[in-house]
Design a protein around this nucleic acid. Structure first.
Lengths: 343, 343
DNA sequence: CTGAAAGCGCTTACAG
DNA sequence: CTGAAAGCGCTTACAG
C-alpha cells in the first residue's frame, strides 16, 4: 500500500543510502540525482516509516496521556494546553482513558511501555489510588508528570492549582457579602476536594465564624448526589444563606435544587463554584466561581514533562528532585452571589 | 533504561530465538528453560518493543483520530464509544486535534501516515472543508471513516445521526403543543445544521404553517452569537412562541436571553435543543431535546473502521462501496417546552 | 530442544 | 558522488 524506501530506491535506480541522504538533504549527493529522487518520492507519495526511526534513535517523539473520560470540560481545558505544547515541540500523543482498564492501570502502563512513549502525563483516576496502583506508577520507566490531583505527596512531578487559597478567596467573598451561615459541598474522595475544604475552613476560622458539621456535605459522586443533598439541606427550617461548592458542576446541581424549591438565587441564597468552565456564563444566574487556568496547567505539565525527557537523554534524571507546580487561581464574581437580605 | 531481548538473552545465557519462543509460549522450548526465562524477564521488567512487531507485521494496531477539541461534550460522548470499541479489539489510539494544524490537515495526515496507523477516524473540522482539504483526505492510504458531518456526500464511509427526522420530530412536538409562531436557530456552516433546518421546514410545511424568513436565524458561531440574536429577536413586538435550536448549547443561550429579558420559559416561550448532553438535566428548566446516541455513533464508527481494516488485510477493499450509517434519534420531552398560553 | 541466519525498513559510518 | 555493510530489536523459518 505504502511504498518503502527500498522500493523507491529500485524505482530511482539508486541505492537506499542515496535515497535516504537525498530526502534528508544531507550532503554528498549530486544535485540532479537528488531532485530526481525527490520528484519520484513525491509522485509515489513516499512517507518515511516513523517506527523505524524511533527504533534507531531510541526516541518515539510520542507521549502517552491517561485521562478519565472525554466529557469532562475541565479536563478538556487542560488537554488543550497539553496538545498545544506537545505539538509545538514535535511530539505526538497516545491517549488512554482510565475506565477502559479494570486492572488498576497495569495494562495501561504496559501499553505505554511497549509503545515506548518518551514520557507520560497522568490525570487522576476517578477514585483514590490503591497501593497497587501507586506501585504500578513507580514501575514506569519513563518520565512522568501527574496532573490535578496530588495524592502521592511529592513523590512525582506534579502540576495543579492553588486549591486551598482559591477556596479561601471565595469564602472570603461570601463573608464580605455578609454571609454567616455558609455551607460547603465538598468532594472528599479527591485531594483537591480536601484542599478546598481546608481553604474554606481556614477562611471561616479566620473570620471567627462557626462551621456546623451538618453544613459540611461530603458529596458521594459528581453526577447527581449534590442535587439530592442540596434539596434536603435547603428544605430544612434552618438553612444556610450561602453554599460553597467543590466545582461548577456541583454548583449547577445546587442551583437546580434551589430552583425546584423556589428559593431565589442570589436573593435568598448565594452559590459559588470552582473551575470557571464555559457554562458558567451560559447559565442563569451566571455563576460566581474561582477561575483555574486549565489550559495553563496543561501547558506547564507538558513543558515539565518535555524537560524531563530532555534530562533523561542526558542521563541527569537521578540528580533531580520532583517538582510541584501550583498555578494561581482567581475569583470571578458574577450573579450567583450577593449581599444577604435581612428579613 | 528498558532492557532489550538481546540483553535478556545474554542474562539468561540462551539465544534470542529461545527467549522469543519462551515468552510467546511457542512450542519447542524445554519447560524449565522457559520458566527460568520468564522469571528473569519479569524481574528485569522486560517489555517487548511494539515498534518492532509493527514493522514486522505491517500492522501497528493503532488507529488515528482527528477531532476538533476536547471541550465539546457531544464529541466526548462519541469518543467514549470509540475508545471502548477500539480497546476491546486491542487497538491503541493517536489523537490529533484540528486547530493545531494551519495547513488544512496536510501535516496531520502526514503524521498519521508516518506513524503507520492502520485506520483513521475523522471528526469534521470547525468550518466547511476546502477542496484542498478534501484532496488531502483522498490521498490517505489507509481506511478512513468520517464522523458526524457528511459534507463529502457518500465518497467516504460515514457514521452520523438521523438529523432531518430528528428535527422534524421536535418540530412536530412543538406544533402539537399548539405553537404556530416557531423560530429556528440553525447553524448553516455544517451539514448537520442544514439537515436539521430541512427537517424543521418540512415539518412546518406538512402542518401547513408558514415559516417567516426573519425567524430563520443562521448562527454565526456556536459560542455567543445565539445569545445576541435571541435577545434581538425576542425583544421585538412580534416574537415567536417557540424556538427550535441547532443544539443544546444554542438552546442554553436562548434560555439565557429569555431570562435576561424576563420572558418565562416555558410559560411564555418554548425552547428545544438537539443532542441531549448531560447538562440538559442539570439546567432549569430542564431542556426538551432530541437525543442522539453519541456513544453509539462512536461504537459504530470504530466498528466500521475495524471492519475496513480487516478487509484491507484481505485486499478486498476495492470491491466495497462506502457505507453511510445514520443512527436514529429520539424525542426527549422535559420542561422547556409547553402548551402555548393564549392571552 | 536450541541457535544461527535472514529479514522487516530504515540510517549511518565507511569504502571505493 | 555512490553504494555495500552493519545495526536498531525483534520474529520466523530452518539447520543441527
Amino acid at each position: 500500500m505504502m511504498i518503502s524506501l527500498k522500493q523507491l530506491a529500485k524505482l530511482c535506480g539508486v541505492s537506499e543510502a542515496t535515497v535516504s541522504k537525498s530526502l534528508h538533504n544531507r550532503p554528498g549527493v549530486n544535485a540532479q540525482t537528488r531532485e530526481k529522487i525527490k520528484t519520484i518520492a513525491k509522485r509515489f507519495n513516499y512517507q518515511p516509516n516513523a517506527l523505524v526511526r524511533s527504533i534507531q534513535s531510541g526516541k518515539t517523539l510520542m507521549i502517552g496521556i491517561v485521562c478519565d473520560h472525554f466529557k469532562n470540560i475541565y479536563a478538556g481545558m487542560i488537554m488543550a494546553g497539553v496538545q498545544k505544547t506537545r505539538f509545538a515541540h514535535g511530539y505526538d500523543m497516545i491517549v488512554i482513558p482510565w475506565g477502559l482498564s479494570d486492572t488498576e492501570g497495569a495494562d495501561i502502563f504496559r501499553t505505554f511501555a511497549e509503545r515506548r512513549v518518551d514520557g507520560l502525563l497522568v490525570f487522576p483516576p476517578d477514585e483514590l489510588p490503591t497501593p497497587r496502583y501507586i506501585a504500578e506508577l513507580r514501575r514506569v520507566s519513563c518520565p512522568l508528570v501527574l496532573i490535578d490531583q496530588s495524592w502521592t505527596g511529592c513523590e512525582f512531578d506534579f502540576v495543579g492549582s492553588e486549591d486551598k487559597p482559591g477556596a479561601s478567596a471565595i469564602t472570603d467573598h461570601l463573608i464580605s457579602l455578609g454571609h454567616r451561615k455558609i455551607a460547603n459541598f465538598y468532594y472528599g474522595a479527591v485531594t483537591t476536594g480536601r484542599s478546598r475544604l481546608e481553604g474554606f475552613q481556614s477562611a471561616m476560622a479566620k473570620a471567627g465564624l462557626p462551621v456546623h458539621q451538618k453544613w459540611l456535605v461530603n458529596i458521594a459522586d459528581l453526577q447527581h448526589d449534590a442535587y439530592v443533598q442540596a434539596k434536603q439541606l435547603l428544605s430544612r427550617e434552618d438553612r444556610p444563606t450561602a453554599i460553597c461548592c467543590f466545582n461548577d458542576h456541583i454548583a449547577m446541581q445546587v442551583l437546580a435544587a434551589a430552583w425546584d424549591l423556589k428559593i431565589t438565587v442570589p436573593a435568598e441564597l448565594s452559590v459559588a463554584g470552582f473551575a470557571d468552565l464555559w457554562i458558567t456564563e451560559d447559565i442563569r444566574p451566571r455563576l460566581t466561581t474561582i477561575r483555574q487556568d486549565g489550559e495553563k496547567i496543561g501547558v506547564e505539565a507538558a513543558k515539565l514533562l518535555l524537560d524531563r525527557i530532555k534530562q533523561t537523554k542526558k542521563n541527569q534524571l537521578d540528580e533531580i528532585e520532583p517538582r510541584c507546580i501550583l498555578l494561581p487561581t482567581k475569583l470571578v464574581i458574577r450573579d450567583s452571589t450577593a449581599q444577604i437580605i435581612e428579613k
